[in-house]
Structures are given as C-alpha cells and as structure tokens.
C-alpha cells in the first residue's frame, strides 16, 4: 500500500471538489473493494475522499412513483427495505445472493456498482493486464479464463463485471445520479454507466474525474414476477458463473418476458432488449439465441453457452410455476 492522505467532507459538493483538487484522489465508501486493491497496489490513490458523511444514506420516494436510493445506502439495508422487497424483488434477491453478510453490511450502493473485475490476472501485479496497466497485454487471453466474458469482450480484455446488484438494476432500468466537481448534476441511465472494454479496458464507466454518484433512482414498480438466479460453484460467497435477472408477466394466459438481464457474461450487466417482448411465449431457446448471438467464448468458458440456455429455461420454468401458484 502506498502512503495516502485522507479527508472526510460533509457534503457531496465538497467531496466532488476534493476529488479533483488533489491529483490521484479517489472516493472511498464501504472500502470492501478499494482497500483490497490498495493493499495489492492495484489501486494507488494519493488521497482518499471518504464519502461516508455526505448524507445520501436513505431510500426516498420520487415524484414519478419510484424510489431514490442514496449512494451510501448499505447493501444489507437496501435488500431488506420493505418497499424494495415488495416492488423490486429482483433487486433484493440479487443483492442477498452476493458476497457475505459482513461485506453487505459495509458495501454501499455506489461502491457496488463501481466494484472492479475479479479477473485473477488483474489481481496479480506480476501479470500483464491492460486494465491495470494499459498497453501491457492481457494474460487472461490464452491463460486460465473459465469464468471470463463470452459477450462484448475485446482483444484487449475479456473480463466480466462481478456485481449482482447491477444486473438487477439493469433489468429495472435504474438511473445513476451524479454531481460533478463543477457542481453540475446529471442522470445516467444504467445501461450507459458501464463501458465495454474495447481498446481501453481501464475505462470502466462514463464517469468523469471527480464525478460522484449521489443516488440511484428506480422507475415506478413494474410488477410481474421478479426472479434472480445465480449459478455458482458453491452455495454462498462466490461470484456468479452466470446469473439471470428476470421480470416476467402473464399476458393472455401466457408467460412473457418483460425484462431480462444477465451477469457473468460481459464487462457490464448484459441486457438484450430484443430478447424481451419480441419473443412471444417466452421460449427459452429462441430468447437465448438472441442473447447469445455474437457470443465469442474461449475454449475454457464455452460451457457458459449451454449454461445460459439451461439456466434461462429453468428460471422461466420457475416463473411459470410461480404464476400458476
């Protein structure tokens, strides 16, 4: 870990300003991702701007009938909130499937969205990694990559985004609210927040330097059956191999897919809008064909293709069973 300075501003505006005042500054929220990366010198901030005292730690109704989730709301509190559980079940389910109770108690809404990949070569500073050291190469390509991306990857990087929460938020069409060091605020659709790796895998989001996430807003409840199915190699405390966020509805007695997003497949939560309403009758294979079109698996992760199909089919079955109950 490199030596760093530290401050704890009392407002969002101050925090955003502080983050550009000192070159190399970074925000810290729960610290569950950032501190690990600092110990390994993957992140080497010169200055930490602790955002834990800026407020934004509540969940409030919006004028549009949705909810505004403060950036500092802890994952545990968000998942347990009765409004979230009632109206946005997929979000609650996604969050509790992630990490561990202790981590979720610390982890924040913004921090979870901005957590970095779990690619093991990214974590090993003796290995080439374009995300960690732009231009150094990608050790995962040609290496051990059984849990890497099959969609949207590039010649420069095949890492996945590890968040479960973000997959549910993608299905729910959330928006990310930010404030810039200039004081200007904006709202970014979650679809646009994360970038594909392209030639610049170190650029992971569209956030500008010093731009602070203050909240995530959810549109008014969509209803429907909301499921989150996470496939993983042990029952808890493991990142997704594949995950599915599904909002399904019964229309004219038939199950239709209202929203569908995947985790574990790409550099960002993966949603293919054409795979949703277009496919009548929620036929798993037809939907999967659309979702997986353009998939470029490696030899080691090609099992994810059948896994996506089968997991989707099983999740749709659950929705059918749930609907008829």
């Amino acid at each position: 870990m490199k030596a760093f300075t530290y401050e704890r501003p009392a407002s969002a505006a101050e925090a955003a300003a502080a983050a550009v005042r000192i070159p190399g500054a970074k925000f810290i929220a729960g610290g569950t991702n950032l501190l690990d990366l600092m110990k390994l010198q993957i992140e080497t901030p010169t200055h930490l701007v602790d955002v834990n005292s800026i407020g934004f730690d509540r969940i409030e109704p919006t004028d549009q009938g949705g909810l505004r989730i403060g950036a500092l709301v802890r994952n545990t509190d968000l998942a347990a909130d009765p409004r979230i559980r009632r109206d946005y079940g997929v979000l609650s389910r996604a969050i509790v499937s992630g990490a561990s109770g202790q981590l979720r108690n610390k982890a924040t809404t913004a921090g979870n969205l901005l957590q970095r990949t779990r690619c093991p070569y990214f974590y090993d500073t003796d290995m080439a990694c374009n995300k960690r050291t732009p231009g150094s190469g990608c050790a995962a390509i040609g290496g051990l990559n059984a849990n890497h991306a099959i969609l949207g990857a590039s010649e420069a990087c095949i890492a996945t985004h590890p968040s479960d929460m973000a997959v549910a938020m993608r299905a729910l069409d959330a928006s990310v609210e930010t404030v810039a060091p200039s004081g200007a605020s904006r709202s970014i659709p979650i679809a646009d927040l994360h970038c594909l790796p392209g030639n610049t895998p170190h650029v992971e989001t569209v956030l500008e330097p010093g731009e602070l996430i203050t909240a995530v807003t959810l549109p008014k409840p969509r209803g429907g059956l909301q499921l989150y199915r996470k496939v993983r190699e042990r029952a808890s405390y493991a990142f997704a191999t594949v995950s599915v966020a599904l909002i399904a509805k019964i229309e004219e007695g038939r199950l239709t897919v209202d929203r569908l997003a995947f985790g574990g497949l790409a550099h960002k939560p993966w949603r293919v809008e054409q795979a949703e309403h277009a496919v009548a009758g929620a036929v798993a294979d037809s939907i999967a064909d659309v979702v997986l079109s353009g998939a470029r698996p490696t030899e080691q992760n090609s099992y994810k293709l059948p896994l996506v199909r089968r997991t989707l089919a099983a999740t749709l079955e659950h929705a059918r069973a749930g609907a008829s109950r």
């Binding site: 561990s100 779990r118 093991p120 070569y121 974590y123 090993d124 003796d126 290995m127 050790a139 040609g142 290496g143 051990l144 190699e233 042990r234 029952a235 808890s236 405390y237 493991a238 990142f239």
Partner: peptide, 23 residues
Amino acid sequence: VDPRYGNWVNGDLAEYLMPVHAD
C-alpha cells in the same frame, strides 16, 4: 497453475474455493 508462467492463478481465498457454511 498457469502453464505459461508457473504462477498460482487463483491465489486468494475468494478464488481458491472451499466450502462455506451454506455448503
């Protein structure tokens, strides 16, 4: 082990899996 370099690829307890309580 990465057969190209000889390093332990999953060299931490998040990636070297063993059962947790739920298992």
